[in-house]
Design a protein around this nucleic acid. Structure first.
Length: 1049
RNA sequence: UGGAAAGUAACUCAGCCGGUCAGAGUGCCGUUCUUAUAAAGCGGUGGUCGAGAGUUCGAAUCUCUCCUUUCCAACCA
């Protein structure tokens, strides 16, 4: 009837068969299809991975955390919309191609040709596509991989153009300067991610420079770590609130600088007890603002004049600190983020005397020198003009190009921006719409970022990306194109099949609506984060197609990615959607912690601690890997991954579940038990059955609630706990109910209960471990129920049957388990093993124990009789001592005699009396009334008992062994030995009959003769007799030696 | 360097809207039990709950400082 269940835990092969089954039967498509008219839809967005990098173990985490949610909702009867996607643009792709082609840098790309280059890029992004698809498939990740969105697709790009045009029309896109980390050798800006890879500690000469005041014979002292920026200096910056001083220094000069830093800068001037300086006057920073000084280099003054802007004067800004330098900062707006901002705020000229190769320009005396080589020259020059105060060595972290090791320079480039700072409040509103898990993301990482949001620099001076759809005319007019149709309508030279990439779009010109001239596209492409942030609409080519579909599937219910995406994908999604649609595009988001190695160290190639996903998938299986990520900890915490940890989950849950299932199948097969031919007869169920069904339905109820709240780990852990109890309490306690030959009502109940539990549990954890549950479901449900859906993933998610939940029953069973635990503990401490029967157990509990449960306790503990009471006094005895604090006053000099009287008080009687009030004692003829607080009460254990207490529960077992108990113990012991003997005897199965012979011990022989019938029935012996025979072995039975012979009858 | 998260037994974690234990699992040792189990039960070993202050009658739990790990962000001039 059922398929035989293999007991080995080699899940990998079985999982592969399940994959085949899904494929052959289109199970995925069936699972996400609308179940019924009007059924709700559940929509997810997939954060697109880049297929030009290999998938690693962390990607398994993101895939499986994501996957469990739609699977759950699919089984709840919702239809699922979840399109996979690929992120295909960007610098990393270009770098891969450069490497493959053996070229390096922009000039060489131009030399190679842009068209063939981007063609290579387009191929390169699919380098690891197979691996990605294979991995996604293998872990059971169910997203629509057949029709994924691809960010380089023309339709996708066109939707982005539409979005950009919307922003353009809102006046949010502008061209400005951005200070970018720039590699002068490669001729390109680097992304922050790349910059982060190349920080090194360097020791360089910094400069403290004298800036001569125009109106007096005094100098501002300013410090810089980059002397090569000094020729481009246009201002000095002070902190508005800190104190500055004008001092007469002992080198003869008069200086302005921060009071707090006087000693550290000027201190070294002091000679022979002479003071280094004398404070002439003090000012607040703002008092010194607007003071003009003499430009260090004429070139900068000329350039300022050319730009008709005031320069070379002092300004104030709060970013200046008193930690290093002089408290006065030299400002070169072209070479620093803060400098640029200060420049904008004060309308300073943009002086940039460095060219794109990193060389100083002709406007300076250092023309042609590379910036770092110019440093010493500048210092020398200033020194010769007496403008250099000092040139201290300075150690700091400085970024280098990770490819060519050239020091990066921060460099003003013209850049296109989206004015996100204007949308700050809306962004925060969108952020608040999101149910972030963990919650701290909202006000923490994301909230902080949004409160300080800056304009989004979206342009990149690269080749492989979505082209910025802005055309420029010589007359100065700019036009943003929002669709291919618009482009064609304005252009005479646009090919019909225009591809929206460089260099093709660059060859398309449009007619200037202002002057009729020819407009050319700007050269930039855009940040690929704009690509991924546009996916909610661009994946459907909205608004050009699928308008209605988009409207009904936006926003989505759920997304999930790693925490590193806070400022990446999460931000770009929120940013774009907020501008276009005024809201966040997703409702719930699980932010995942990264996967580390087992020691909590980040996995990285050079450390060699990277776990290959296939290593796990091919040896332990996908369910095991999934279960690890669900149960290890909350998804947002970092996971310390190791194969050993995965193994724990196999032992604890996967193996346990599998075995319980195998147990059911084994016996159901022997008995040819068909659950469809019976119904669960609730009225006749015993305590164990009702208990496990109650536990099951409580679990179902809680898991439904938790999964509705995206609480994956709690759900999984509860399922794991239940499975453990199912196996080690319910099945273990009920095993013998499946053994009998006849089909009694109790046996049917046992089968039906276990079947019901397994069926529900299988469906309950199907979203978590989709492979093993598929196999189990098909074997125990589909094979007998032809009406059942062909796959567990097409079945209904279990809903709790409240009528089966009995809280009191669960509580009482917990009590039973506690009693058993304490009982075992009593045996342990009395050193009486479980096979030795004992006469009596006493249980003291506030909760009564129904008669129904008593046999469970007795059988489990191998005890004859149980007595339950609510008062411990029958179990323990009490002894008393006077509490001297109160008794001292009460008895005075009678105290010593009182002690004796008190020591002899009858324990239980006195204790009970005290609990109800007071007792009277007579000492030396005088009567005293004593209350509880007059005594120190000690409990003593009566002779012949072993007692254990936990909380309000006390269990005591009688340890007295009568002759009869000892004999029964010997019988049990012999049964155990003979069963072992049977097990070791070749060719004997559990149901074979045997002939048993014994020899060699008169005492045991007597016992055997006495209990012959019982013994025979337990070991399935058709004959028991004294003598020797084949297959004999000597056994030690509680110290007595005896030889048994076991032969198949 | 800044921001965020985390720091509880050898390991993985729970507890953390202040007040019975400092807990569970794994590991190790002992022992029991087994006609499903790479099992299970019981006992033992093991932690000044990162360190130090503070608030409080009372803190693993709240506040502050510091240290360590991870992530993110960073030319502080």
């Amino acid at each position: 009837m059922y398929n035989k269940v293999s007991k080995d835990l080699n899940f990998v092969d079985r999982e592969k068969k399940v994959l085949e089954f899904w494929k052959n039967n289109d199970v995925y498509k069936k699972s996400i299809a609308p179940k019924a008219d009007g059924a709700p839809t559940f929509t997810l967005y997939d954060g697109p991975p880049t297929a030009n990098g290999k998938p690693h173990i962390g990607h398994i985490k993101t895939r499986v955390i994501k996957d469990v949610i739609p699977r759950y909702h699919a089984m709840k009867g919702e239809s699922i919309v979840f399109k996979a996607g690929w992120d295909t643009h960007g610098l990393p792709v270009e770098l891969e191609v450069e490497k493959a082609l053996g070229i390096n840098g922009k000039p060489q790309i131009e030399g190679y040709g842009v068209e063939p280059f981007i063609k290579k890029c387009k191929e390169s992004v699919w380098t690891y596509k197979d691996q990605w698809e294979h991995m996604s498939d293998r872990v059971g990740f169910w997203a629509d991989m057949e029709n994924p969105y691809v960010t380089y697709d023309n339709n996708y790009i066109e939707s982005e153009w539409w979005a950009l045009k919307q922003m353009w029309d809102q006046g949010l896109i502008y061209k400005g300067h951005k200070i970018v980390p720039y590699c002068p050798r490669c001729g390109t800006a680097l992304s922050s991610h790349e910059v982060a890879q190349g920080y090194k500690t360097v020791k360089e000469r910094s400069a403290v420079v004298r800036f001569k005041c125009v109106d007096e014979d005094a100098y501002f002292l300013a410090w810089t770590t980059t002397p090569w920026t000094l020729p481009s200096n246009v201002a000095l910056c002070l902190n508005p609130n800190d104190e500055y001083s004008k001092v007469k220094a002992c080198d003869g000069y008069t200086y302005y600088m921060a009071t707090a830093l006087l000693d550290s800068v000027l201190g070294s001037l002091a000679k022979d007890g002479e003071k280094a300086y004398e404070i002439l006057e003090s000012y607040k920073g703002t008092d010194l603002a607007g003071r003009s000084y003499v430009a260090l280099y004429q070139g900068a003054a000329d350039e300022a004049a050319k730009q008709k802007k005031k320069a070379h004067y002092t300004v104030c800004d709060e970013y200046v600190t008193m930690e290093d330098g002089t408290g006065i900062v030299h400002i070169a707006p072209a070479f620093g983020e803060d400098d640029a901002r200060v420049g904008r705020d004060n309308d300073l000229p943009m002086v940039q005397f460095v060219d794109t190769r990193g060389n100083l320009t002709e406007e300076t005396p250092f023309a042609g020198k590379f910036v770092k080589d110019a440093d010493p020259e500048v210092l020398k020059d200033l020194d010769s003009r007496s403008l250099l105060f000092s040139a201290p060595k300075f150690e700091h972290e400085y970024p280098f190009c990770w490819r060519c090791d050239t020091p990066l320079i921060y460099f003003a480039r013209s850049t296109w921006f989206i004015a996100m700072s204007k949308k700050r409040d809306e962004l925060l509103k969108s952020n608040n719409m999101v149910n972030w898990m963990p919650e701290t993301i909202r006000d923490g990482r994301m909230g902080d970022f949004l409160r300080n949001v800056i304009d989004w620099g979206i342009s990149r001076e690269r080749y492989w990306g979505t082209p910025l759809p802005v055309w420029e005319c010589e007359c100065g007019h700019r036009h943003c194109i929002g669709s291919i149709e618009e482009l064609k309508s304005m252009s005479d030279d646009c090919p019909d099949d225009i591809e929206l990439h460089k260099p093709y779009v660059d060859n398309v010109h449009i007619k200037c609506p202002k002057c009729g001239g020819q407009m050319k596209r700007v050269t930039e492409v855009i940040d690929c984060w704009f690509d991924s942030g546009s996916m909610p609409f661009a994946q459907y080519h909205y608004p050009f197609e699928n308008k209605e579909f988009f409207d009904t599937h936006y926003p989505c219910q759920f997304i999930s990615e790693g925490i590193d995406q806070t400022r990446g994908w999460f931000y770009s999604l929120i940013a774009i959607s907020t501008v276009l649609f005024g809201r966040a595009p997703f409702e719930n988001c699980i932010v995942m912690g990264i996967v580390q190695d087992k020691d909590g160290i980040k996995m990285s190639k050079h450390l060699g601690n990277v776990v290959d996903p296939w290593d796990v998938l091919d040896s332990q299986g996908a369910d095991a890997a999934r279960w690890y990520f669900y149960t290890a900890n909350q998804p947002w915490l970092p996971s310390r991954f190791s194969k050993e940890a995965v193994n724990d989950g196999i032992k604890k849950f996967i193996g346990t579940f599998w075995n319980t299932y195998a147990f059911y199948v084994m016996y159901a097969d022997i008995d040819n038990f068909d659950p469809t031919k019976h119904t669960l007869d609730k009225a006749s169920l015993g305590a164990m059955d009702r208990w496990v069904l109650s536990r099951l339905n409580t679990l179902i109820k809680v898991v439904n609630e938790k999964m509705d709240n995206y609480d994956i780990s709690q759900s999984a852990r509860l399922i794991q706990d239940f499975t453990e109890e199912l196996s080690n309490w319910y099945v273990r306690r009920c095993r013998d109910r499946y053994w009998g030959a006849e089909e009694t009502q109790d046996k049917v109940n046992a089968y039906m209960t276990l079947y019901t539990v397994l069926d529900n549990l299988t469906r309950l954890c199907a979203p978590f471990v989709p492979f093993m549950t598929e196999e189990i479901y098909q074997n125990i449900v589909c094979s007998v129920d032809k009406e059942a859906p062909i796959s567990v993933h097409l079945a209904k998610y279990p809903v709790a049957d409240e009528s089966l939940i009995d809280a009191k029953l669960e509580e009482e069973m917990e009590l039973v388990q506690q009693i058993v635990t304490l009982g075992h503990s009593c045996r342990e401490s009395a050193s009486i093993k479980n096979r030795q029967p004992l006469s009596e157990i006493y249980v003291v509990s506030e909760i009564g124990l129904d008669d129904e449960y008593k046999p469970i306790v007795l059988d489990e503990l191998n005890i004859r009789k149980i007595e339950v009471m609510s008062d411990a006094s029958t179990l323990v005895d009490y002894s008393f001592k006077p509490q001297l604090r109160t008794c001292g006053r009460k008895f005075g000099k009678n105290l010593n005699d009182a002690k004796e009287v008190i020591a002899n008080l009858p324990g239980k009687e006195t204790y009970n009396a005290l609990k109800n009030g007071s007792v009277k004692i007579t000492v030396n003829g005088e009567e005293y009334e004593m209350t509880e607080e007059d005594f120190l009460i000690e409990t003593t254990q009566p002779e012949g008992f072993s007692t254990q207490t936990s909380g309000n529960l006390t269990v005591s077992i009688s340890t007295v062994l009568t002759e009869e108990l000892i004999e029964d113990g010997l019988v049990r012991e012999m049964i155990s030995k003979i069963q072992n003997h049977r097990k070791e005897t070749e060719g004997l199965t559990v149901s074979d009959r045997i002939v048993l012979k014994y020899e060699g011990n008169d005492k045991l022989a007597e016992v055997i003769e006495k209990k012959k019938d019982y013994l025979a029935s337990e070991v399935l012996a058709v004959e028991i007799s004294k003598g020797t025979g084949d297959n004999s072995k000597e056994w030690n039975v509680n110290g007595e030696k005896i030889t048994f012979s076991v032969v198949k009858a």
